[in-house]
């Protein structure tokens, strides 16, 4: 029987019609009716493989040959959710009968994970691959090496949403809210301070744990310093500003404490020195909360007319809202910052 492993062999075409392995299967062709919508120019290889898949699924066949068939189809359509589910069920059934790793099949969960990673690199924007990986790692109950696997993906695209979703699951499932995770986000932010996914993940690690009490001592200070440093390097980076605001909110520190910091990027009396629209935006809020409507209006007008004119309708809408601050939501208590 053909091996399920190496990439070269995987590229080898399966010969369903002549290989005796498939001789007992009557392929089930697709019925597309008379004048279908959205008919796709399938490759002949895909058409044949899918006809065998339908026949195999109709018979609930979970024998080892299913691994060849499903990997063949995944190579042509990695977003085929049914085939991934069918493959996983087959793997589990072989695992339960303790035949997965015997000589005849010669496959293992580790080989499966390597193969999955090779597919992930070929089809970066794919959800199913990561869900499959998640099911396997959950079943093996062992996250060893998994952070490195996601790291390889971040080297290709450090904002890959599916990979970040998987990473969050990994952290939660195996309680990896640790120094290594913190260092990983720091290093990604070092590479690209505008990586919003890395900022979000940092928030998730440091402050986003559900059902947890307030942050530990020093954390809010450490994280706001990190954000402030990042802002100094790139004052127009929305990710760092959003992080800073969220950290303060979580720490119960009033926005008003940011006034000197923001004014250093946006002195409204010296518009030529303004370096950040985000600082102006926050200042308008701070001035408004302090009842200084003149300055608040000035900040919003600078945004509308000069520093962020594409949003001028929005900034003028904000001007109309001045003085009408809604009461703070119950989940964002404000307490005075301690010196």
């Amino acid at each position: 029987m053909a091996s399920y492993s190496s990439e070269e062999e995987e590229e080898e075409e399966l010969d369903y019609t002549n290989d005796p392995v498939w001789a007992d299967v009557t392929p089930l062709p697709q019925d597309d009716g008379h004048n279908p919508l959205a008919q796709i120019a399938y490759s002949p290889e895909y058409t044949i493989a899918m006809s065998y898949l339908r026949a195999i699924m109709a018979a609930n066949d979970h024998s080892p040959r299913v691994l060849n068939l499903t990997s063949d189809i995944i190579g042509m359509n990695a977003a085929h959710y049914t085939v991934w589910g069918y493959r996983f069920k087959t793997l589990m059934s072989l695992d339960r009968s303790q035949t997965l790793e015997d000589e005849k099949i010669g496959w293992s969960w580790r080989q499966e994970l390597e193969w999955v990673q090779s597919i992930a690199k070929r089809y970066e924007k794919n959800y199913q691959i990561w869900h499959h990986r998640q099911l396997i790692i959950d079943h093996l109950d062992d996250p060893t090496g998994e952070r490195a696997v996601t790291g390889e993906m971040f080297a290709l695209d450090s904002k890959n949403y599916h990979v970040w979703t998987y990473r969050q699951w990994l952290v939660q499932r195996f309680q990896l809210f640790d120094e290594e995770e913190l260092a990983a986000t720091a290093s990604l932010l070092e590479e690209d301070v505008r990586n919003n996914s890395a900022w979000n993940h940092r928030y998730f690690i440091v402050l986003g744990r559900l059902g947890e009490a307030g942050p530990e001592e020093g954390v809010v200070e450490r994280e706001s310093e990190l954000a402030k440093e990042a802002i100094s390097k790139a004052p127009q980076n929305p990710s760092a500003w959003n992080y800073l605001k969220a950290v303060l909110r979580k720490g119960g520190i009033e926005l008003a404490t940011l006034k000197p910091f923001c004014e250093s990027f946006a002195p409204i009396l010296s518009p030529d020195e303004i370096k950040s629209s985000h600082a102006l935006d926050i200042l308008s809020e701070i001035y408004d909360e302090a009842g200084d409507s003149v300055k608040a209006e000035k900040a919003l007008e600078l945004l509308a007319s000069k520093f962020d004119p594409v949003r001028k309708n929005y900034w003028r809408y904000r001007r109309r809202l001045l003085g009408s601050k809604p009461t703070p939501a119950s989940d964002t208590p404000t307490i005075q910052a301690t010196a």
């Binding site: 919508l37 959205a38 008919q39 796709i40 120019a41 399938y42 490759s43 895909y46 042509m76 359509n77 990695a78 977003a79 085929h80 959710y81 049914t82 089809y123």
Partner: peptide
């Protein structure tokens, strides 16, 4: 799009072909 075959690249949407039908119509 409605009257001829969609190119082979759309194979990755095969399991959600009805979404392609929706976009075309």
């Amino acid at each position: 799009c409605l009257r001829t075959l969609l190119p082979t690249e759309y194979t990755s949407n095969d399991l959600n072909r009805t979404s392609l039908a929706f976009f075309c119509v």
